[in-house]
Design a protein around this nucleic acid. Structure first.
Length: 433
DNA sequence: TCTGGGGTCCTAGGACCC
DNA sequence: TCTGGGGTCCTAGGACCC
């Protein structure tokens, strides 16, 4: 059996944990640049504010109902997430951290020690709430897809009090009838439209389709697995990370600029900063990357024909996590992509093709193995220590700097409504009193 | 005026190899 | 020279997720 533990309105809940005055009132959290709404309290949802809606479009509704609005504070959310996940790894034999606010638990053999799983889930839920002030819902089922579905029903039906276990065929069928087909995990906009056109509107109707039918209409093997999972046959295993930590297969740092940019030095500043940040994340998970992609984009919303993006990818001669090397290669790619007179709105750096730092893979064309040079590793370690201690980007590559010290870089946007990093920054510690 | 960021998996097709 | 079959690697693009 699997359990899916999902935090309710996670970013809003994090803010509420430190500002109890926000409880019971409508609250929304904004994306980077204060651009879109990415988390809503139940009260905000009830007002009709939509997930992903641009802030300026929801503005009148927000003003009218005095909705509290905050910029996103990822330092806070990341720290709160770790607290929740650390607790879960203590109480379940296997944990897969699926996202910042969700985890799958493997509960094989748990009944023997804990009795009915529903009671165990209620205890976990109560403990998470007591320790972190984060509310959660728990869905329990024989497959991951059914656990997601159970979680969704538990969230919507107040009578269930946040927990639903699909441990009998009757309960499973009942839950399948509660959920619309577009709300099934793995059914997005395209498939939902197609399924509705064929008269399939509930999860139950999709579960009654044959595997072969799903293979034909829902993207091959992916759809076949989806239907089998709804029928109760597990097709997705748990992927537990080390110590509950995620190990990514690609790492990206991409941003929409605070304002349109066209000058090469401005673009270079952004790309340098993004490559540095991506390299930092790469080192934190102990990998080196073999593949580097850089892209620069014009506005998605302007007139004129697509494509609005130019990108290029290179395979590095030697896999690395060294900021200076990655920045040098990213700079060279940008030289090829940048065109004078073009107005850019966004850029990004993506790292791929990872190897563990310890076991470099030998390339046929290299004279020497792709080992990280000790000198370079020590330098990067020192860099990470300084930035961890004194704040991100205390030490950085010179091309990432702005011409005017102490000013935000040209590519940086607005974060006017950010709350303090209550838990992670010495300057912004929570004050009690 | 303002419209996010970071991931995963799968498929198809071409190049190349045995 | 012609033929068939099977495999790998790479890229681009689609669909979906939180």
């Amino acid at each position: 059996m699997f359990a899916l533990v999902d935090c309710n309105n996670f970013y809003v809940s994090c803010e509420r944990a430190f500002q109890p005055a926000l409880i019971g009132v409508p609250v929304v959290i904004l994306s980077n640049n204060d651009a879109c709404i990415i988390s809503r309290s139940a009260e905000a949802k009830a007002l009709g504010i939509r997930m992903g809606e641009p802030f300026f479009q929801a503005r009148s509704l927000i003003d009218q109902h005095q909705v509290r609005v905050f910029s996103s504070n990822y330092a806070l959310y990341g720290d709160m997430s770790s607290r929740v996940m650390n607790y879960l790894t203590d109480v379940a034999p296997e944990v897969e951290v699926y996202s910042i606010d969700e985890a799958f638990l493997g509960l094989h053999g748990m009944e023997r020690y804990h009795g009915p799983l529903e009671a165990y889930a209620r205890e976990v839920r109560a403990q998470v709430r007591q320790r972190t002030h984060i509310p959660t819902c728990v869905g329990i089922a024989p497959t991951k897809t059914l656990a997601k579905l159970a979680n969704r029903v538990a969230k919507k039906d107040p009578a269930l009090d946040g927990v639903l276990a699909l441990d009998t065929p009757e309960r499973r069928q009942w839950a399948l009838n509660q959920v619309a087909v577009e709300d099934v995990w793995g059914i997005g906009r395209q498939y939902a439209t197609r399924l509705h056109a064929l008269g399939l509107t509930t999860a139950a109707s999709l579960a009654s389709c044959s595997e072969a039918w799903a293979r034909r209409h829902l993207g091959g093997v992916v759809g076949a697995r989806l239907v089998r999972e709804l029928q109760g046959f597990p097709c997705h295993q748990l992927a537990p990370g080390e110590d509950g930590r995620l190990s990514r297969k690609s790492i990206a740092c991409t941003r929409t600029f605070g304002r349109p940019l066209s000058a090469f030095p401005d673009l270079l500043g952004a790309v340098t900063a993004f490559a540095s940040r991506a390299a930092e994340k790469l080192r934190r998970q102990g990998s080196v990357a073999h593949v580097l992609t850089v892209f620069i984009s014009q506005s998605r919303f302007g007139s004129g024909p697509p494509p609005h993006t130019r990108s290029a990818q290179i395979t590095l001669p030697t896999a690395t996590s060294n900021t200076l090397e990655l920045v040098r290669h990213a700079h060279a790619i940008l030289d090829r992509l940048w065109q004078p007179g073009t107005i850019y709105q966004k850029a990004g750096v993506v790292l791929d093709g990872f190897e563990g730092t310890g076991q470099p893979q030998l390339s046929l064309f290299e004279k020497a193995p792709a080992v990280t040079r000790p000198q370079s590793a020590a330098l990067m370690q020192r860099l990470d220590q300084l930035n961890a201690r004194y704040g991100r980007a205390t030490v950085q590559v010179a091309t990432a700097l702005t011409s005017t010290p102490n000013q935000p870089a040209p590519w940086q946007g607005q974060q006017q409504r950010r709350t303090p990093a209550f838990t992670t920054s010495w300057d912004e510690l929570w004050e009690i009193g």
